[in-house]
Design a protein around this nucleic acid. Structure first.
Length: 308
DNA sequence: TTCAATGTTTAGAC
DNA sequence: GGTCTAAACATTGA
């Protein structure tokens, strides 16, 4: 699933690949995916009339200036006074294709993470938005579950987007200091540490995979209440966050679920997982069997010997 | 046929 | 308001 390292990977790759490309046409095959304006695109919202036409009108003729990341949101800066905010949620994918890539892949891409899943040609069943560029390159947005969204926001209104207003600090930012972390975490003394780490108000970008991995490295069980954590344990958690996320970025993300890079290839983080997705397997450090526990409908994986 | 998976929002209970 | 739980969103695969 895309968490901070996966979204960072997509942002970096698209920033490089889309720079200065001009949109010649947009094809929107699922209206619920797109939006115009700062309002949150909640699942149950009704689709505003004319949103597809509005979206197209704004984007046509625009150039992509840059792509960056805030939390798990992608921010595409357009040459006009508009930005496009994209959330991949759980299964969103971007695949960029130019002549060279098409030649290299034969136009066949991986869209699923199953080892034996056949590669498919794009656009595919779950391709919902397609950007055609003036130089004949193409950007596909795929999303099996349609939870993701592409939202155009006028540059003067980006500050009004609720997601941004509620986000806590970026974990890799210099402002994310130990005291800042402790202040945030201690606001939630009764919360379980894994859920607190995944709360975007505390720190952004950490989801199920990386919270499990961070807690393994900190030797703390996911179910521990914040109030029960000793100072040295909180410090260990804080110190694990940066290195674990940076390792994920270096590996170009973790291909669990449907995450793929923008050329359709898989990220390499999966083989570095110590606990996530390893239920029933042996701990890489001590050989104990990895256990799972339910936390508010989510699964937490941990080593019963390494984590206290 | 039912259930789990996943990120996020929303609603309701205490 | 903090905290917890469950439901909703769409789809697939076990």
């Amino acid at each position: 699933m895309p968490e901070l390292p996966e979204v960072e990977t997509v942002a970096n790759e698209l920033n490089h690949k889309l720079k200065n490309r001009k949109v010649a046409d947009v094809e929107i095959r699922a209206a619920k995916i797109v939006g115009v304006g700062p309002a949150t695109l909640s699942p149950k919202r009704s689709i505003p009339p004319g949103v597809v036409e509005k979206f197209k009108k704004i984007v046509l003729g625009q150039k992509f200036v840059s792509v960056r990341r805030r939390a798990k949101l992608l921010i595409f800066d357009l040459s006009g006074p508009w930005s496009m905010l994209v959330h991949l949620k759980m299964t969103g994918q971007f695949i960029f294709e130019d002549k060279i890539l098409r030649k290299a892949t034969g136009g066949q891409y991986r869209l699923l993470n199953k080892k034996d899943a056949p590669k498919v040609a794009l656009p595919a069943k779950h391709t919902h938005v397609i950007f055609y560029f003036a130089d004949k390159s193409v950007l596909y947005f795929n999303d099996v579950r349609k939870f993701g969204y592409l939202k155009l926001v006028h540059d003067t209104e980006v500050g009004k987007v609720r997601e941004f207003l509620e986000y806590g600090p970026e974990p890799l930012d210099k402002k994310f200091t130990l005291p800042a972390f402790l202040t945030q975490v201690k606001k939630r003394p009764k919360g379980k540490i894994k859920q607190v780490l995944m709360d975007n108000k505390v720190v952004v970008g950490i989801g199920n995979i990386y919270s499990d991995e961070i807690l393994f490295h900190a030797k703390v069980r996911p179910t521990r209440k914040v109030s029960s954590l000793k100072p040295n344990e909180l410090v260990a958690i804080y110190r694990a966050i940066g290195p674990v996320l940076k390792k994920g970025i270096k590996a170009k993300g973790s291909s669990v679920g449907d995450f793929v890079r923008t050329d359709g290839s898989w990220g390499g983080m999966g083989k570095f997982h110590f606990v996530y997705g390893r239920k029933g397997q042996k701990c890489k450090k001590c050989g104990s069997v990895i256990q799972v526990v339910k936390l508010g409908g989510r699964t937490g994986s941990y080593c019963p010997k390494c984590q206290v």
